[in-house]
Design a protein around this nucleic acid. Structure first.
Lengths: 202, 202
DNA sequence: CGCCTACTTGGCAGTGACTGCCAAAGCTCA
DNA sequence: TGAGCTTTGGCAGTCACTGCCAAGTAGGCG
């Protein structure tokens, strides 16, 4: 379990690392292909493992859950999110900071097509949606202190208000990405996001 | 599968209906007890069935999934939600209508203590949260036409804006109920909801 | 070059939620 | 009471996921 230097510093790649990289790629691609071809629920781990040429056991070692086979390292999303928001200047407001974080995460997708495929699957598969929402809730939790720091003090429960603002931002992202998918990926998600937020904040 | 007249019109209760009622009650109470005692994930269906005095198979016939053992008929929530919002006068705005719907659903809980127990479990168990969010998403979908009918026409994607508003309302409900649970049920959830929405709509 | 060590892999058995199927037992109504 | 329907329980099977153990493979060292 020593894979800290996993970034693009391609230097110290041992054979094992390269093999692992290959396998990860292969599994991820096979999974996405099968998911889009026959649906998420209809695709079994056994099938993915077989077609990717690894054992089920190994597949589960690479990706802890079936959900992780979509979108890969979702923890990275959370990381980028908090990092980006932390990096905003102190005088940037809550909404602007949240917007920046979301934009950064969206820009993480490798290609528009891939993103569309993934989003499509995500919004049309109940089991996937559930898992994704849950994971996102953890991100939201991480954002709490960051957002509270940017809020103007006021009476009542700052905690509740911070939570509400964060959740609202994600709610707008949801609405935006759903519409984006419904439009087959035409237009810019962030434009839709802005429209949603404007509608909410009236 | 003839259980339409399942409301409080207690008249045409056959023995079967009463037995079913009893069993439902027993299962629900056993489940909630075990969940709070030892945690949701640590409680198996086998155990609930055993202690409630029914077979696993029967338990699954009463409640399709483990999640349903918490909060029982969640479909009823959705029903009350849409009904209440539909019943609002035509000149009532989106936010007010959504607020009314949420208030109606909250008032459905039998007692403050039960509600607190359930909410506590819900907010502290990842697997439960996921399922709940997913189910709620379906409610949100049902609300779409109702909300769009109340929106003032404007450019852009009405669909996206309606989604965003609905999701925001629920986001505020989430934030409110989390804080409510954190405060051990002190105060009124709707007050917190109002505070959250005010923070968002600034 | 050979060997020892550390890591990785695959198979196997097991758990837990959930489903289909079939036979047994229960209610209901004439 | 008996025919006919519903409900129930048990059993086997599927699927995601985990622990365990044996076998294979890379990396470093003499």
């Amino acid at each position: 379990m020593k894979q800290e230097a996993k970034t693009t510093t391609g230097a110290p790649t041992t054979l094992w690392d390269r093999t692992r990289q290959l396998a990860t790629q292969e599994i991820l691609e096979t999974a996405l292909r099968l998911f889009t071809e026959q649906g998420y629920d209809e695709t079994t781990i056994a099938q993915i493992a077989r077609e990717a040429g690894v054992s089920q056991r190994t597949l589960f070692r690479y990706f802890g859950t079936k959900e992780d086979l979509l979108g890969g390292d979702q923890d990275r999303f959370g990381q980028v999110l908090t990092d980006t928001i932390s990096a905003q200047p102190a005088d940037v407001g809550v909404w602007e900071a949240l917007r920046a974080g979301i934009a950064a995460v969206l820009s993480l997708h490798d290609s528009r097509e891939r993103a569309l495929e993934r989003f499509h699957l995500l919004h049309n598969t109940a089991s996937l949606r559930a898992g994704w929402l849950e994971k996102r809730l953890r991100f939201q939790e991480d954002l709490l202190p960051l957002v509270e720091a940017r809020m103007d003090a006021a009476g009542g429960s700052a905690d509740a208000r911070a939570r509400a603002m964060i959740a609202t931002a994600f709610a707008c992202l949801d609405a935006a990405s759903m519409t984006w998918v419904a439009n087959d990926g035409r237009g810019d998600i962030m434009d839709l996001y802005d429209e949603c937020l404007a509608a909410v904040r009236g």
